[in-house]
Design a binder for these strands. Structure first.
Length: 920
RNA sequence: GCGGAUGUGGCGUAAUUGGUAGCCGCGCCAGACUUAGGAUCUGGUACUGUAAGGUGUGGGGGUUCGAGUCCCUUCAUCCGCACCA
């Protein structure tokens, strides 16, 4: 009887589906466990072998947890809105919903073949109105709430309104776009429109003019994390800065909580670090500088108030609102020229030459409140409008950027912290003693910061301030294929739709392009208004909208009355294990933490962090193969001989290559260009290819499709080989050649149950050796799974099966346990052999075997005996030999004589049951 | 520039957390069986040397009886951020 994986896998996949084996419900008799995968965007290319890596790992863990008695929620769905489907629609006229449907179907087929234990009854799709109803609903809640810094949580906008009615802004601690002040009377005297406008300053979802990353080629706005080096991440189109009225989410209100929350969650250090940097907290002070001969004051932010005596000039961002007002007559032209020039430069150009110093004096001076000196005010694009206050006090002696600027424009440099050599470079460090600074002199810099902050606050010229780099998230996209905003406009002001009207469904349009007026595609929709005739918002939501709360929807996917019921949320609580790629560090993973915290404030969810533990799986890279064509010929030379020729390296399709040997016939057929190719072979008449590890992609001809692997080796082999490749978190190249080893292992396992003719297991009692092998493996597998070290589990299984084969063990008591611990990794073969043992119920319902340490007890130990740390021979001894006696045995041992050379040893180290080391 | 991660055979990797470096698998070499096969099985395989031995975990230094593991330093690769005051 042979291992017919195709038949077996088909049979059990069907049986599991019919039995709804993986369907879960709330069950208070069992502890819950929620294992989540980052749901895929169903692209047209289908899955390649790298995509399921994380899914396999999470599936193994889910299956393991079930065997351990947990009620495991392990759902899957699709992040179905997105640019590629829309780009495809623009090109072909095909509705993106159709493309998406087709792609989802293909993904599902591929996923099903791998034998995952997903509860598909809970599937979500972000483009499904039943699903995005709740995305829209959360948006309305964000619109209807503001952030109270006093209570540190989101509160209903009605509370803010009644506060304004009583006190105006007096004493309010609200997170807002702009600090504004008005009295209760002023508030009450405003009309509806004016009040609504003011409220946008506080709402957590608000409409405002913002500088956005505009991508003309895609016709839309992009979030910061969707732009890299001035180009769009998707498509690589140029991105420019543009001011537009856009929806934003006030995520900055949650900056501190997002930072604090990182300490409570079990994520990798690198990922936490990325989020910390992205949030970018910095502690400092805001200080007001008077502009000389004027009533204007300049507010600056600094993290080094201790160096204020060294502030010899000031710099404003070119976009700073006071630039025009303070610039003196004779400098007006020069200043406006400079501003014009910086605006012309794209973001990318600005980043490309950060070393180039540029700036312009405004003619104005500011008064340094401590040195009592008038210092010149400059503008320069090295100061960013979007950070802090858009203005700085420049301390050239202790800030490298200020230093470069001062040197370039010949501005004074005054040393105020000792420890560096400011004739050469700025001394940026906080290690040093304050000098030239009046009452701060002789203090360590760190101490001086506290002292000067007190002084600044005492004088009323400023206050301590914490700044965050985290910007509010721009939430509008001028696109078709996304969630419509549940917003209509009355007198040009936004109002939320009645929640009972949700979902607001995406309308049909005649073309997936902007209108002639330059409106977004929804401008083409007919009757895109409320029943009363008010126009609806034309933008749609961005990609991260639908993924921000999907894990909550899985808890209660069909609930039509609420996002997630209290009952479901209190049972499933949060995601215990989340597996996905690190590329979402500053996008999805920060937005969904924000949404979750907001929903937590509203009492809708009971945990304030959504993902307790998170693992980033590494990327699977491609292993490309190369052939070497001699220039100007159609002749290819083998790797070993290529040095003698002038060659061009060309990607060969990896389907034509086995163990780096080129299949000549297949290669000739792979491209008409090669049909008549000639070859220079190695001595053994083989053509050897070169290789390199590269991204897996069509253009490199190195894509491996899981379907092909499954046809040839089966899903169980694929699953185990993906794990066998190496540690989950690491990137590693895929090399199909290695898969044989794993496949052979499964065949060898099969041989423990079946001979060529028949089933051969026995009911004999297991021997001590067999029990030892089994329990050693149980222990190892359990530890490995809990540490997510799946690669070492696979080799432990191989060792176990090798050893049992050597002992000729076919005993039921051993094999049963082995199958259970293997079943998370290779569920099909485990289920098949389980039923062959006569079991009626699925192996998924078995209990993970208890490890029993008694079976591992040894009665002797083979000591490695070292001389000066070098292993020389081995000495088997009983476990209970006393140290004193071991010493004697070692010294008398004939092998020792050679290394002692007649001398007495200086020292003998004996670690019982570990090692013996003789120091000579 | 700042922050994070990773460096071990020809390749993917392992090492009980300071105690026998190279487990498991690929590849390679040799052999067995055989309708010579991309099947199966057996043995070998870090480097060097005929051998005894010597060398060896990116490089250099240190702590220790003992270091892949700890400390200092340096190099390389990858990832993130980047004029963030």
């Amino acid at each position: 009887m042979d291992y017919e994986f195709q038949k077996i896998e088909e049979k059990w996949q069907k049986a599991w589906k019919e039995a709804c084996l993986y369907k879960v419900d709330i069950d208070f008799s069992k502890p819950k466990y929620f294992v989540l995968d980052m749901f895929p965007y169903p692209s047209g290319a289908g899955l390649h072998v790298g995509h399921p890596l994380g899914y396999i790992a999470s599936d193994i863990y889910s299956r393991y947890k079930r065997l351990k008695g947990f009620n495991v929620l392990h759902p899957m769905g699709y992040d179905a809105y997105g640019l590629p489907a829309e780009q495809y629609a623009i090109q072909t006229g095909q509705h993106p919903a159709i493309t998406t449907e087709v792609n989802i179907k293909r993904y599902r087929e591929q996923l099903d073949k791998i034998g995952f234990s997903f509860d598909w009854s809970r599937e979500v799709r972000t483009c499904d109105p039943k699903y995005y109803k709740w995305t829209q609903w959360v948006f309305i809640q964000l619109f209807k709430h503001w952030y109270n810094k006093a209570s540190q949580k989101a509160e209903a906008i009605e509370n803010l309104i009644s506060y304004f009615e009583k006190n105006g802004t007096n004493g309010i601690q609200a997170h807002c776009s702009e600090e504004i002040q008005f009295s209760a009377e002023e508030w009450k005297s405003k009309n509806e429109k004016e009040q609504q406008e003011l409220l946008l300053n506080y709402r957590l979802a608000y409409l405002a003019d913002t500088m956005v990353n505009w991508c003309p080629a895609l016709g839309t706005v992009l979030a910061n994390d969707e732009v890299k080096d001035g180009y769009s991440v998707r498509g690589g189109h140029p991105v420019m800065q543009k001011e537009m009225k856009q929806w934003s989410l006030r995520i900055s209100a949650y900056a501190q909580r997002l930072l604090d929350g990182l300490d409570k969650i079990n994520w990798s250090d690198s990922l936490k670090e990325i989020q910390k940097n992205w949030i970018g907290r910095s502690e400092g002070a805001e200080v007001l500088f008077d502009v000389s001969n004027s009533n204007h004051k300049l507010l600056i932010f600094t993290t080094r108030p201790d160096t204020i005596f060294g502030a010899t000039y000031m710099v404003l961002a070119p976009e700073h609102e006071l630039v025009n007002e303070i610039t003196t007559g004779e400098y007006k032209n020069a200043v406006s020229n400079y501003i014009e020039e910086t605006q012309k430069r794209t973001e990318r150009e600005r980043m490309a030459d950060t070393k180039k110093v540029s700036g312009q004096f405004t003619g104005a001076f500011a008064f340094n409140p401590f040195t009592k000196q008038n210092i010149p005010i400059w503008i320069s694009d090295y100061v960013l409008a979007g950070y802090g206050t858009g203005a700085i006090m420049a301390v050239p002696a202790h800030d490298s950027r200020d230093y470069a600027f001062a040197k370039h424009f010949n501005l004074p440099i005054v040393e105020v912290i000792s420890g560096g050599d400011i004739t050469n470079e700025a001394y940026d460090s906080k290690d040093g003693i304050v000098i030239n600074s009046d009452f701060l002199n002789e203090m360590p810099a760190k101490e001086a910061i506290l002292k000067i902050n007190d002084e600044i606050e005492k004088c009323g010229i400023g206050k301590r301030k914490i700044n965050y780099r985290l910007r509010d998230a721009i939430f509008s996209r001028q696109r078709y294929w996304g969630e419509p905003f549940p917003i209509y406009y009355k007198e040009n002001l936004p109002y939320p739709l009645d929640e009972k009207k949700l979902p607001l469904e995406l309308p049909e349009i005649d073309a997936y392009l902007p209108t002639e007026k330059g409106e977004p595609p929804l401008g083409r929709a007919k009757n895109w208004t409320t029943e009363e005739g008010y126009p609806l918002e034309l933008s749609t939501m961005p990609g991260f909208a639908g993924s921000s709360a999907y894990y909550l929807r899985y808890m209660d996917p069909n609930n039509e009355n609420t996002l997630v019921s209290k009952e479901a949320n209190h049972y499933w609580k949060d995601v215990d294990l989340y597996i996905g790629g690190a590329e979402h560090a500053t996008g999805h993973l920060i937005y969904s933490r924000f949404w979750n915290k907001f929903l937590f404030d509203l009492g809708i969810v009971c945990e304030d962090e959504p993902f307790k533990k998170l693992i980033n799986q590494g990327m699977i890279q491609g292993r490309s193969s190369f052939v070497y064509r001699i220039k100007n010929t159609n002749k290819f030379v083998s790797l070993n001989k290529k040095e003698a020729f002038d060659t061009t390296e060309i990607h060969a399709d990896i389907n034509c290559v086995t163990n780096d040997i080129l299949d000549i016939e297949a290669f000739k057929k792979s491209n008409p260009e090669y049909a008549n190719a000639e070859f220079i072979f190695d001595e053994d008449d083989k053509y050897r290819c070169g290789w390199a590890v590269e991204k897996m992609s069509k253009s490199m001809y190195n894509v491996v499709n899981p379907d092909d692997v499954i046809v040839k080796y089966g899903a169980d082999t694929l699953r185990m080989y993906e794990m066998f490749l190496g540690p989950l978190e690491l990137s590693k190249p895929w090399d199909t050649n290695g898969i044989d080893g794993v496949h052979k292992f499964l065949k060898k396992l099969w041989r423990l149950f079946y001979s060529r003719e028949s089933i051969i297991f026995t009911d004999e009692e297991p021997s001590a050796d067999e029990l030892k092998i089994l329990h050693k493996t149980i222990k190892k597998i359990q530890e490995d799974i809990e540490n997510f070290s799946f690669n070492t589990s696979v080799s432990a299984f191989m060792i176990c099966v090798n050893e049992l084969t050597d002992l000729g063990c076919h005993k039921r008591k051993i094999l049963e346990s082995l199958l259970i611990i293997l079943s998370p990794f290779a569920p099909h073969i485990a289920e098949e052999l389980w039923s062959a043992l006569g079991k009626k119920d699925s192996i998924c319902k078995a209990d993970f075997p208890e490890f029993n340490a008694e079976f591992l007890v040894e009665n002797s130990f083979e000591y490695p005996v070292s001389f000066n740390g070098r292993l020389r021979y081995k000495l088997p001894l009983a476990l209970d030999v006393p140290v004193k006696e071991i010493e004697e045995i070692v010294l008398k041992h004939e092998s020792s004589q050679r290394w002692l050379e007649g001398k007495a040893p200086k020292k003998i180290i004996i670690v019982p049951n570990k090692i013996i080391n003789v120091v000579v």
